[in-house]
Amino acid sequence: MDIVIEYITAIFLLIGGVFALIGSLGLVRLPDFFLRLHGPTKATTLGVGGTIMASLVYFSWTEHALHLHEILITLFLFISAPVSAHMLAKAAMHRELKYREDTRGKPWKQ
């Protein structure tokens, strides 16, 4: 049984790490700010989410009690991440940052 829990923990950890890395890769690779904004949303949702799930499974198993502490961090990030993304997008539109020419539609005047 221990080995199953270890495998589950390991898989969650790897999922978390890989998605955080892909998110940051997007932050570096993508050509304009509005596109780069999409990278970190992933790091928060699946990146941290995966790590938290791993910790949850592991500590619940080693302590033989449901250990839901960490859920609070994910909950808080799920509430806060969209707000910061929204505020940053507004700031970028206010500063009239350049966006790729082939972007359809227009940002709003702030």
């Binding site: 509005f34 992933k42 993304a85 929204h86 997008a89």
Partner: peptide, 11 residues
């Protein structure tokens, strides 16, 4: 909308 990757609400 912002949490589902691929879309971000901007304003």
């Amino acid at each position: 909308v912002s949490l589902t990757p691929g879309t971000v609400s901007a304003d």
